[in-house]
Design a protein around this nucleic acid. Sequence first.
RNA 1: UGCGGGAUAGGAUAAUGGCAGUCCACGGGGCUCAUAUCCCCGAGGCCCAGGUUCGACUCCUGGUCCCGCAACCA
Length: 696
Amino acid sequence: MSHEEFPTEDPAVVTCGLPYANGDLHIGHLRTYVGGDIYSRALKRLGQETAFVSGSDMHGTPVAVNAAEEGVTPEEFALRHHEQYEETFPKFDVEFDNYGHTHDATNVETTQEIVRALEEAGYVYEKEIPVAYDPDADQWLPDRFVEGTCPYCGEHARGDECDEGCGRHLEPGEIEDPVSTITGNPAEYREREHKFFAVSDLQEYLGEFIDRLEGTANAQNQPREWIEGELQDWCITRDMDWGVDYPGEDDLVLYVWVDAPIEYISSTKQYTERVGSDVFDWAEAWGADGGDGGEIVHIIGRDIIQHHTVFWPAMLRAAGYAEPRAVMASGFITLEGKGFSTSRDRAVWADEYLDEGFRPDLLRYYLATNGGFQQDVDFSWGRFRERVNNELVGTVGNFVYRSLLFAAREFGGAPDVDVSEDVRERIETAIEEFEAGVNGYSVREVGESAVRLAQFGNEYIQRNEPWKLEDDDPEKAQVIRDCVQIAKAVAVLFEPVTPEAAENIWNDLNEDGDVHAVGVEAALDVSAQDFGEPTELFEKIPEERVDELNEKLEARVAEATADAESEGEAGADEGDDDGEAAAADLEPIADERISFEDFQELDVRVGEIVAAEGVEGADKLAKLTVDIGVEERQIVAGIKQLHDLDSLPGTKIIVVANLEKAELFGVESNGMLLAAGEQADLLTTHGDAVPGTKVQ
RNA sequence: UGCGGGAUAGGAUAAUGGCAGUCCACGGGGCUCAUAUCCCCGAGGCCCAGGUUCGACUCCUGGUCCCGCAACCA
């Protein structure tokens, strides 16, 4: 690796964090992949030899647990997601040079090689630790295969973290009353030998490494806490079948975070196997040939910074590979100002975006340029429309279209004169900005260099008004020639962000060759002379589309929330919508009608609140004791913050009495109270119906 | 609680301690080859409180708020 400016003489590897084979992709995920794709295209554009690789992360307990729930094998489960990812990325023009997965033979082999190297170098030792064990099923229960009671807050918790209560991380052996998540059997603790990676031996190295690491500031600073504090060694084995076998140990697999980053190497290897080492040499890039290695750039979400700045470089170092040059950690995405919530279907899914008929270019542009890469950005359909209409249609599309249209009509293509000095210099400036974006690890800067150039183009054509010039005025040919060149430069510089539009400009210009393969210098190359009338690059998004999309989103969230509530998860999630907003745009009435019989299935009763108290550890849940005439019921509802609980006893409410029981935060909820809207305005009786009266 | 990132106009971004600039949106006017671009004018901003200083968005102290991370969560 060098710390010279790109492009360097060495091969580069750009990687994207492995998507975990356990769910659907939404535009929040896409930010990292689009960012990586743009960055790798930009590097290639600068002439840097680059491999862009990733793969699906197939292992780990969540896959195993979810597969078991579905009754399929982990491999089947994970492969299904893998295939889906593999199909989805190209639809967004995210084009990996190689996309593998962690369960393929290459990765298993590479992982085992690296683990052996760690062992040989003396970085692995054994230690006995307590592990949950299911004696009935004769099975070890690592991580999420066990759940029980958090020793710190007493809430129900997963084996590895107290997900519902205090949020603390739990060490193996800590969780109390352990129960198997597969069989429901009570578990016991058994001492068990496990393998540890002596990260602490590499503390000094990691301290130096982090000082020279490039990329975004968050990736460099966040891990300082651990690296400059006391590093703990890392347990790298698990008692399960699903994973990469630990070499020489039949009943242990490697912890998923060992084989996951190694997929970066394996995927590069597969690329070399496909194209030949004369085109791209994985061993040189990763320093497996004993050399210094190439330029390794990791592009990840900021949630996995520590894995890429502590464990991973430690493994590379200990096993004798090259270290990463840069880590770019992206911020998160919010949707219309609020967090994504996949359980509430509050998300813009990758497939959904495409199904709405939008081109990948538009989203790529939005994601790449709406804020700095490490900044959290908000996605809203309104702003999406604004930026597409103003910047892509108004600035870029309009400039290219008006220039090429004018050129085609007046000259049948580009007039045969040289590009003026001023314009040449302006294009050179744009190239410099583009390069600065790559060297500053800013996909935003890369994307904006082309838009600013198009903006200059609009000013330039406007200032010179070629449409007012006489046909024999040499100035007319000059201006048009300059504009055609600017349009070509825009195609070259905008290609990483909007590959499809770049291709269209290229075709309109009647250029030979592949716009995806040319270098930045092509921006200044003489254009083809003849071309016809151009196509329109981008289409405006009408305002009604935004309304429609927002309505769809709201309706979906409402539906998912209602589903969740009927499953007894009411209020356990965020619900901070404000009342005015909810009143301003009401959800449309459902189209589907239900029969009277269906309605009659609901046993709705008048009830009276006897007692109300908050559920400990939950922000929003309240435990209510409700008198419904025939009996008293305990009902949990998400109203803790919305009502004064002390004033509730004596209040008459309406209750769905025959809703199935549910457990929320470990508290049983036997029924559901009816309330209106996000503010949970409680339904009550107008007259004096006694508790137990049926509502009909 | 600790650590990190952040807070500049409605949104997005700049400013060695020296006039708070730019893009988009908004209001008004002009131009018009073009999917309404460009030009002109206008309204609108430094999270708060102290301090250092001739002078603070910038440096210091103390707060507030947002987003993360806190290690066998993929």
